[in-house]
Design a protein around this nucleic acid. Structure first.
Length: 309
DNA sequence: AGTGTTTCGTAGCCTGAAGC
DNA sequence: GCTTCAGGCTACGAAACACT
């Protein structure tokens, strides 16, 4: 009996020892796992650093080659397009009001000044025009981005006729008083609905551009919801336009405002409220026209009296 | 994706005449 | 000598088209 007990104790000891060994093994496995994770993280960091260094080396090598070489290559024959640096240069020259027909020559002349010779080709007028279209699209996207992030926007609208064609100008300013042109479009008529349709068209275009470039298709609605005031002339159509704009904005507000449903009715009403300002220049112009007519009349009467005397 | 060419209407520069 | 004005000229952007 005592032998059995002794054997039992021995076995229990062995089991205890095995448990200790298992725990130690588990600990080692855990430590190994942690070390492996750490090594993997280090490897990833080193790989990233290595890639960055390779990129820097390539850049410096290109820079060195460019410095050594007298040749300037703007066109990539493999990709069949001009380099991004060339396109940026063209856009900068267009910003300086260099005519599209002269861009190529300007690049050539400046290259000569820097002791470089252009190889292959430089952008033609048609290519510059294409780049200009892309420049405008980029500008539209940038304006859309800025305005959608701004608060307290004011919308300025005005219409004019030129050689029988009607045009609408749309501008916006933010709380820092920075002014942005968002569109100058041809209008079918100066009616309020047509003016509003064109504004919606402009916002939709901004949406499309933003969507194509970074997948954001909410720019137009954000700009509309951020618009809290309008400024226009005193034409009756403008007053109707303002009303229609408010209606449109009220439709959009619940869709883009966070926790709209949790807001009190009063808070919702405050957010929906818009301010409308009207330019009085036309009143002054009309006054000046009337004054001129009266003064001419008076001058004529005075003249008659002088002749009479 | 880019080139070359043409057409159109417009804006702005240049120049000469006239007036002060 | 300066300013203003009108007319001519040039360059411009935009669009269209055929082509590479």
């Amino acid at each position: 009996m005592s032998a059995v007990k002794g054997e039992n104790r021995r076995l229990q000891k062995q089991v205890g020892s095995l448990h200790q060994q298992i725990s130690a093994a588990k600990l080692i496995i855990q430590q190994t796992k942690e070390e492996r994770d750490q090594l993997e993280a280090d490897y990833s960091t080193l790989k990233q650093t290595c890639n960055e260094l390779e990129t820097s080396t390539r850049y410096l090598q290109d820079l060195l080659n460019d410095t050594k070489s007298n040749e300037l290559k703007l066109y990539d024959n493999f990709q069949k397009s001009f380099s991004p640096a060339c396109e940026v240069t063209v856009m900068k020259l267009l910003d300086c009001n260099v005519g599209v027909r002269h861009i190529g020559n300007v690049i050539n002349i400046v290259a000569e000044l820097c002791g470089k010779t252009l190889i292959d080709r430089f952008p033609s007028e048609a290519t510059v025009n294409n780049m200009n279209d892309r420049r405008l699209a980029l500008a539209q996207k940038q304006v859309g981005e800025i305005l959608s992030e701004s608060i307290n926007l004011t919308l300025y609208t005005d219409e004019t006729s030129k050689y029988g064609t009607k045009f609408g100008g749309y501008h916006m300013s933010n709380s820092e008083q920075d002014m942005y042109v968002i569109g100058l479009r041809e209008l079918a008529s100066k009616s309020a609905s047509c003016t509003l349709d064109t504004l919606q068209e402009i916002l939709e275009d901004m949406n499309e551009t933003s969507k194509k470039l970074d997948g954001n298709d909410d720019v137009g609605r954000k700009i509309l919801s951020n618009t809290i005031a309008t400024m226009s002339d005193s034409a009756s159509t403008e007053k109707l336009f303002n009303q229609k704009l408010e209606d449109l904005r009220n439709k959009v507000l619940p869709e883009v405002t966070e926790k709209w449903d949790e807001m009190s009715e009063e808070a919702q009403k405050d957010l929906s409220q818009m301010l409308h300002f009207f330019c009085s220049l036309h009143v002054l112009v009309n006054l000046a026209v009337q004054c001129t007519t009266v003064l001419n009349q008076w001058q004529r009467v005075e003249g008659l009296f002088s002749i009479g005397s």
